[in-house]
Design a protein around this nucleic acid. Structure first.
Length: 933
RNA sequence: GGGCGGUUAGCUCAGCUGGUUAGAGCGCCUGUUUUACACACAGGAGGUCACAGGUUCGAUCCCUGUACUGCCCACCA
């Protein structure tokens, strides 16, 4: 054999080479497929596009592993398969990464022109894209690189503008001034989803502040704020509780619950605001929870969502005391120019000085923080673009409710409905530079005071500036000047178009016709609202179709202590490439896919070793499995080489006939069973279970038993055939090692009698997934039963040897009373002799029990091991007695069961099983009794 | 305040719409250079399936409740 395989599998010698080979040959493309089953529908996934913010993490590795598994499985099943790769420009996230990078170089975006800054971001995008692509290739994803997309490609940008215009023209997109979440660090509005709150809240204070009330005897302060006498003479007070004393400056009312007896009398009175001395009314509103704090709430319409609504209800003034940086404005009087937190400190000190601070309590404050910046979000009134979601939300909910989209696992249905049924309009504009600039152009300095100007529109939503001009010129004359809206769209707006924008929408492309709607959408459950729901809503609205029929949600990767891998703890973040470097891609992927169940989080047991490398016992186990497969293939290849080849005439090749060897009939039956189970599980999204079944089959059945038995009597064609089946089953889980070994196997078998039909394929990636049809041998129960009995006998003898510490090389004698299995066991005596190291094997239907022997009652079969001089009679007696007691317990239980209503109510099959069990137990009991006697 | 998970061997997790004696990997214990593999082989120990009720001939699985734990959503300042 000129292709000697190394003793251990070395992923590095295989992975890059095979990846390039697959890619180069077009195997990742639907056009490159050679095996197509006309009964299979096309299978299409668009990748969740990673952000071009840097590198991939373990979550991406999981995504890649699962999606590649799905893709390879369907491709091998013969479905026309397309997996579209790409990346996301990730507006805020990328812009902030680049800004941080610039800051390190001492540069600031605000000192640069918009176009200069964007150039920097594009450079970063290229850099990040390279890293990401390298990582994705290392993960082995079988995507069609010819169709790679980026959300800011010309093609996709056109789709974005088209989508915007379609929604705009329908009146679903509108511009409005309202209260939104404002990130004072990134200086942009964000959507509700981008605000994160700590479940427990964050440690803060609840300040109880009293405002003087106007009375007959006190008309207001006579001393200045800060004098310590500001409230001198005041006699009545109302105490409010607040976590944000600085917003007192923007108060325009104090409110209480209308049913609160404590305050009923002062409703309608005026209170005076500390510091500013502004009179505000005491109003009543049901929004107030009497039991909380003091039962009285300050109302700051410009800086709080609830208060904003209250303000509208009660026609209160909206006074902005903070600017976009969250610094105090001129409205804040003496506090103007202070940062909000500094202002808070000063305000509290001043309140205390003036005797207005009643008490302070520790309080867990639920702070909203920007998803990307971590900055405390300020509610702020601002002019933004919104998308009306009412209709689209209802349609998307209906898609799932009416079964046009299936969510796996199902329990996420509720979350889906809960969100969509209460959906609010989506703030889609961002005050950023990196992204899709909003395709709306304004007539310069529109002014409603100019007579007639309201006749012509002052803004134009078009796909291009030229089109906008064409219309504007008609309305305003040739010298009109337009200015494009400076805002960009929320990055999720373009992601929401992904399943169709990548295929060429809005154009009627061949890809749209062939591959849209797509099939599966696979992603982590954490972006179900951000992304999945938006895709469904926009897909329905813009294309009239659900963009996919199945949503498969995987869990999140967590650290060994169960924590999220957050960016704030970089020491906990694992680079998948590091693990791949240590264990190989297949090992990492097999671990990820078999580690859990759909929708459940995966804890990764990785620890840092002394050399600073990440280590994981579970991934090591998967690595060992790859190596096991490698070595068993080495064994098989060795048996096929001309010099060691067993003449075909001397082999038992009559597969599937009753007189072929037990081991052969058994492994064929097991293969068929495993293939059926794996297919069923894969079609039911139980990938982890499928992987474990393949693992067991390869390691336990094939390696530990079949190959061992092959050493006694070789059936090379079946050995090849079984290995081929195993490799094909495992390929979606461990693509590299299986392809490599399959190629070797095919090569060695070339031109020989060891052909199997899958070898017609050029590559394993394109070979047919095993089906139950090609294991035409079917499941032979008798082979499975016989083999189980044989294994029991061998295990019993091994067990005895071990218990009596018989030297490994020493052969022992054994007597087997085998009843109806005598003939079968006799046929396989060589297996017993070899695998259990027996010399002097007697097998008979019945035989007299030998003296001084270990006894193993296996039901129908009893094994005796004469161990003269070795057997400790007392110990043996005790062992048998214990076993007898156990079996008798079982019999009592079983008999009671069969005597109960069970016999009347349980299904016949179950009763039969129970009866058989009882019979076997009784046989065993008799054997034991006899033996003890 | 609503909602959704989880609780099974020392650890990490499976357990397929209720039915033998509840499984795996790792770890642990005993052996082994058996001619593919020590990244291995053989043997073994180890579980009141969180708790309490209920339904059922039968419950790890279904129902109710409790405890602990994780997460999602929500305008109690």
């Amino acid at each position: 054999m000129n292709m000697e395989l190394p003793k251990a599998y070395s992923p590095k010698d295989v992975e890059d080479r095979l990846y390039d080979w697959w890619d180069k040959n077009g195997y990742f493309t639907p056009e490159g497929q050679t095996f197509l089953d006309p009964n299979e529908k096309p299978f299409v996934i668009t990748i969740p596009p990673p952000n071009v913010t840097g590198t991939l993490h373990m979550g991406h590795a999981l995504t890649s592993a699962v999606e590649d598994l799905m893709t390879r499985y369907h491709r091998m099943k013969g479905a026309r398969t397309l997996w579209v790769p790409g990346t996301d420009h990730a507006g805020i996230a990328t812009q902030s990464v680049v800004e941080k990078k610039l800051a390190k170089e001492g540069k600031n975006r605000r000192d640069m022109s918009r176009s200069d800054f964007l150039e920097e971001v594009w450079d970063w995008k290229e850099y990040s894209h390279q890293i990401i692509t390298k990582q994705q290739k290392a993960l082995g994803i079988s995507v069609d690189w010819n169709r790679e997309a980026f959300t800011m490609d010309d093609k996709l940008s056109h789709a974005v503008r088209t989508a915007f215009k379609m929604l705009y023209d329908k009146g679903l997109i509108y511009r409005d001034t309202r209260m939104i979440n404002w990130d004072p660090v990134q200086l942009t509005g964000v959507s509700d989803l981008e605000v994160e709150t700590e479940e427990e809240g964050e440690p803060g204070k609840l300040w109880f502040v009293r405002y003087p009330l106007q009375t007959n005897r006190w008309e207001g302060p006579k001393h200045v704020w800060g004098s310590g006498q500001w409230a001198e003479g005041a006699t009545q007070w109302i105490t409010v509780a607040t976590t944000r004393p600085e917003t007192i400056l923007g108060d325009s009312a104090v409110m209480v619950n209308p049913d609160d007896d404590r305050y009923r009398d002062i409703i309608g009175c005026r209170a005076i605001l500390p510091a500013l001395g502004r009179w505000v009314p005491v109003i009543s509103d049901a929004a107030v929870e009497s039991g909380f704090g003091s039962g009285a709430v300050k109302v700051t319409p410009a800086h709080d969502f609830t208060d904003y609504d209250v303000g509208k209800r009660h026609h209160l003034a909206c006074i902005e005391v903070m600017d976009q940086h969250a610094r105090m404005t001129a409205e804040a009087g003496p506090y103007e120019g202070l940062d909000r937190f500094e202002c808070r400190t000063r305000m509290v000190a001043d309140l205390e000085k003036e005797g207005l601070l009643v008490k302070v309590e520790d309080y867990m404050v639920r702070l909203g923080r920007g998803q990307r910046s971590g900055a405390v979000i300020e509610p702020r009134i601002s002019l933004q673009w919104f998308c009306n979601m009412q209709g689209m939300g209802a349609a998307a909910a209906a898609s799932v409710r009416e079964g046009r989209i299936r969510i796996v696992p199902e329990r996420f249905d509720k979350i889906w409905f809960g969100w969509l049924d209460n959906i609010r309009d989506w703030n889609i504009s961002r005050q950023l530079w990196w992204g899709h600039q909003i395709p709306v152009w304004y007539v310069q300095e529109p002014d409603s005071r100019i007579p007639g100007s309201e006749q012509a529109p002052k803004q134009y939503c078009e796909l291009t500036e030229a089109e906008a001009y064409a219309k504007a010129i008609k309305d305003w004359g040739a010298d009109v000047v337009l200015k494009q809206d400076p805002d960009v769209l929320d990055t999720w707006f373009s992601s929401g178009l992904w399943p169709f924008s990548t295929l060429g929408w809005p154009n009627d492309t061949a890809d749209m016709r062939a591959f849209y709607p797509t099939t599966h959408l696979e992603t982590g459950y954490d972006i179900i609202f951000f992304w999945v729901a938006r895709m469904v809503m926009l897909g329905l609205e813009l294309t009239g179709k659900e963009p996919f029929d199945t949503v498969y949600l995987h869990g999140l990767i967590r650290t060994a202590d169960g924590k999220k891998m957050s960016k704030s703890r970089p020491d906990k973040i694992i680079d998948p490439l590091e693990l791949i470097d240590t264990y190989g891609t297949d090992a990492v992927r097999f671990f990820l896919v078999t580690a859990g169940t759909p929708g459940n989080d995966i804890k990764i047991d990785a620890k840092k070793a002394a050399d600073g490398k990440w280590q994981s016992e579970r991934i090591e186990g998967a690595r060992n499995f790859a190596n096991k497969l490698w070595n068993v293939t080495r064994f098989v290849l060795g048996k096929l080489s001309p010099e060691s080849r067993v003449p075909i005439a001397s082999q038992n090749t009559r597969l599937g006939t009753p007189d072929s060897g037990l081991a052969d009939r058994w492994i064929a039956a097991r293969s068929a069973q495993v293939v059926a189970d794996v297919r069923r599980l894969m079609n039911d999204y139980q990938y982890g279970e499928a992987g474990k079944i393949i693992y067991d089959f390869i390691w336990n059945d094939f390696c530990d038993w079949y190959v061992e038995l092959s050493k006694l009597s070789l059936n090379a064609p079946l050995l090849v055939r079984t290995l081929d089946t195993a490799l094909r089953l495992l390929h979606p889980f461990m693509p590299y090692v299986t392809e490599e070994l399959w190629q070797k196997l095919k090569e060695v078998a070339a031109g020989s009698e060891f052909q199997v039909s899958s070898f017609k394929s050029a590559a394993l990636i394109l070979a047919p997934f095993p089906s139950t049809e090609d294991s035409a041998l079917g499941t032979r129960q008798s082979a499975l039963d016989d083999m189980a009995a044989l294994q029991d006998v061998i295990r019993a003898i091994r067990n005895a040897r071990s218990e009596y510490k018989v030297e490994p090389n020493k052969r022992v004698a054994a007597l087997v009373q085998a009843g109806a299995r005598a003939a079968m066991l006799n046929d396989n005596r060589a297996a017993i002799e070899s695998l259990a190291r027996v010399d002097g094997l007697t097998i008979a239907e019945t035989l007299p029990a030998p003296p001084q022997a270990m006894t193993y009652a296996l039901g129908e079969v009893t094994v005796y091991l004469p161990m003269a001089g070795l057997v400790d009679l007392e110990a043996e007696k005790k062992r048998l007695a214990d076993e007898l007691a156990a079996i008798e317990g079982q019999i009592v239980k079983s008999e009671a069961l069969l005597a109960s209503d069970f016999a009347k109510r349980a299904p016949a099959q179950v009763i039969e099983k129970e009866k058989a069990k009882l019979a076997e137990a009784k046989a065993k009991r008799d054997q034991l009794k006899e033996r003890l006697a």
